[in-house]
Computed example of a mutant assay.
Amino acid sequence: MDVIDFITRSPDIDFSIASFDGRLQLVTANAKFKDMYRISEQEALPEPSQLRKVVELAARQKQDVAGVVIDEMIEGRKLQLMLYCYKSEEEDERYHTALFDITVLCQFYEMKLANEKRKLIGEMAAGTANSILNPLAVVRGSLQLIETTLKTNLASSHLSDHLVSQSVGHYITLANHQVTEINNYVQRWLHLGKPFHLDLRPVLLSSFLETYVPNLQRDAIKKRVPLVCEFPSDDGQLLIDPHYLREVINEFIKNSFEASHEQKGIVRLSVQVSDRTATITIRDSGPGIAADMIKLVKDPFFTTKEDSIGLGLNFCEVVLQKMGGHYELSGDPSGTEVRIVLPRVSAD
């Protein structure tokens, strides 16, 4: 096979070439192009095709196109292609195109950019988190001293009153709760900046659920959101840190409760066990997540909520990776679904 035959006939070549007439019907193309677009000579480019739109624009404006990146959905898979389109000088209304698949290259640079972004955020977090945690510890200690002093004075004073004591206790508890919330957020921020270790140990899935689900059901009652739980008859052993796994599930559950409460819907928690994995699925009845938001929600500090700083899902991703697992997020108008996938380990 000579060079020309290789370019025109081989399906293994990594670029596509094609020529079109003024009606955007295919005149000639190599095997790679025909395999990608599934059209033959004298057939027109499909209407939804980004290639068709660019060639139409080039013909209308009578300009060549060089190095434009287009997205094409080919058999349900999104490809990123670099396109070159030139008008033939010898023949009227003939357009030559070349397409180079740069999907893998784009994915590499996206991953590289994400890692660099996470590293930069981590360095910022490590440098500032302790500056917040130290004064926060002072605030917490001061609150404890105030509580002790007030209770002592109220107990020894003739002005002591049960209602006053209750009021003081309420505000002290509220302040301590807010300090704890701030502390938790800053701790997650700190996890972006420095390595942290999990206490991984073999835990039966049934044992984890027995200790976790009752608290979850109490939270559902407080939030006034119906919670439906579905558990498997089979059991499995996981290598996890129970505390951090609870934190991960709580993060997703909290979002599900909020979304379902607004829509007066339900939250469904189900668990499936296979030979190799255990999958915890959380499905809510909220408005769902737009498709263009799915990739963004894992980014640190990306959030659609006014009262959030956007570290929750990134924290979940980091923790699950340390457990050898991951999570998958999907959404539609009927709600959002999260699938937490963890590997099973041998009981030996």
Rank of each mutant, 00 (worst) to 15 (best):
L51Q: 00
M36S: 02
Y327C: 03
T103I: 11
H191D: 12
R339H: 08
K87N: 14
I70P: 00
L81M: 13
I294L: 10
C106T: 10
L209C: 10
R268T: 15
R188F: 08
E116N: 05
S142Q: 12
T128L: 14
G265D: 06
L190Y: 10
K298P: 06
M1V: 08
Q187L: 14
L99Q: 05
L227H: 03
H170Y: 15
I221L: 11
H177K: 11
Q63N: 13
L81V: 08
V164T: 15
D292P: 03
P333E: 09
A259F: 02
D2E: 11
V69A: 07
A347K: 11
N115R: 11
H162N: 14
H261E: 14
N115P: 02
A44T: 15
D35N: 11
P232A: 06
V318I: 13
H326F: 12
Q263D: 14
M82K: 12
G335H: 04
E181C: 11
V179K: 03
S165K: 12
N176I: 01
D161K: 10
L83D: 01
A259V: 03
Q321C: 06
A220N: 03
V168L: 02
V203G: 03
L216N: 05
K53T: 15
S330W: 01
E210N: 12
P300T: 08
G312Q: 03
G331S: 10
E247Q: 14
F315Q: 08
L209P: 06
G335T: 04
F15K: 14
E210H: 13
I280C: 00
Y109T: 09
K322P: 04
I289S: 02
I172M: 12
V3D: 07
K117W: 07
A18N: 06
L192M: 11
G324V: 01
E72H: 05
L329Y: 00
S330G: 07
N215C: 08
Q187G: 05
Q321K: 09
V65L: 03
H162K: 15
S233M: 14
E90M: 10
F301D: 14
I146Q: 05
K87Y: 12
G236P: 04
S334Y: 04
I249E: 15
T277R: 06
F315G: 01
K78G: 03
Y84Q: 08
K295C: 07
E116W: 04
L198H: 02
I266M: 11
H162V: 09
C229P: 04
P226A: 06
P343L: 01
T277F: 07
R201Y: 02
V168Q: 00
D92C: 10
P46C: 06
E258P: 09
R118V: 15
A126K: 14
A220G: 05
K78D: 07
K112E: 09
Q272I: 10
R276S: 07
L192G: 04
L204D: 11
K295R: 12
E247K: 15
Q217Y: 05
Q144V: 13
I4R: 15
D307M: 05
E328H: 08
A98D: 04
S156E: 12
I249A: 09
V228D: 13
F33A: 02
I39F: 01
Q263E: 15
D292A: 09
P46R: 08
P48S: 06
N134E: 13
F302H: 14
V54W: 02
Q187M: 09
E56P: 03
R188M: 13
R276E: 15
N30Y: 00
L269P: 00
V225C: 01
L190S: 13
S165H: 04
Q42E: 08
L113H: 14
E251H: 03
